[in-house]
Design a protein around this nucleic acid. Structure first.
Lengths: 126, 126
DNA sequence: GTAACTGAGTACCTCAAGGTAACCTTCAAG
DNA sequence: CTTGAAGGTTACCTTGAGGTACTCAGTTAC
């Protein structure tokens, strides 16, 4: 029964629009990719995701937790140890985001090439 | 021979990182979705993608054209008519982005629910 | 001569994501 | 009693994507 489709990303007021925006923010796709193989500690994620700062990674993980995408488990050891793991819902995101990530990696060369030739013919002959 | 993988989105200096960022910007996924069925005019895209302004849509289409994702054809009629169409490269993006879009629409309810229960148990009992 | 249509360019502004830097916690090592 | 580790939090600042508003071009309709 897919007859009713209450959510439509083309509608600016639809919540799915903001959900989509959140999935596609700067770090969420990368974090999902890192967590896809299994749980990881905060420091492991930070080390694997190049360029992310601790503050922003915390924010990203927090909002992913809030959205039910990751599970956070803080061990009361000292020094503290915090494990993050994809929830079942989060795991359903791995496929789509992985497709996007691998698209970017596979076609980055083509995009760069297109950009170069666009810039060449658009900027030079003026 | 996939032995060599020159592109890695986890590397902040890798071009694929910026390519991924571009695919996941605010309007690109929606525009790809609108163009997926076939070519469309500027005004049609603007009308279908709720909330986008003409200026930003122009910017988005321009940078998609630059990246080789869309083909722009300006008809010298009056008033002007401009058709946009996905390139073969752009068409390979339809699948991945569509998966993401439908994920957002299918799971928006769950995300909203997770958000609500997170806020309820995190904010209330202080 | 002026409004409308269509696709766009430009100047200016706003706002929120993201970055920097500092500090906090607890325990162990020295 | 200082340092270091891990995983934060907070205050503050920067950046740039995106929004608003105005203008333009060329032709037809009135």
């Amino acid at each position: 029964m897919d007859a009713v489709r209450p959510f439509d990303v083309l509608d600016p007021a639809c919540p799915s629009r903001s959900v989509l925006r959140h999935l596609t923010d700067r770090w969420t796709p990368l974090v999902v990719g890192v967590l896809a193989p299994g749980p990881a500690r905060f420091g492991e994620i930070r080390d694997q995701v190049g360029g992310v700062t601790a503050k922003v990674l915390t924010q990203t993980l927090r909002s992913m937790e809030r959205d039910g995408l990751v599970d956070r488990r803080a061990l009361p050891t000292m020094p503290p140890r915090v494990d993050y793991e994809l929830t079942p819902l989060g795991r359903t995101l791995v496929g789509p985001l992985d497709a996007l990530r691998s698209w970017a990696e596979r076609h980055a060369g083509e995009v760069l090439g297109a950009r170069a030739s666009y810039d060449a013919q658009d900027g030079a002959p003026g």
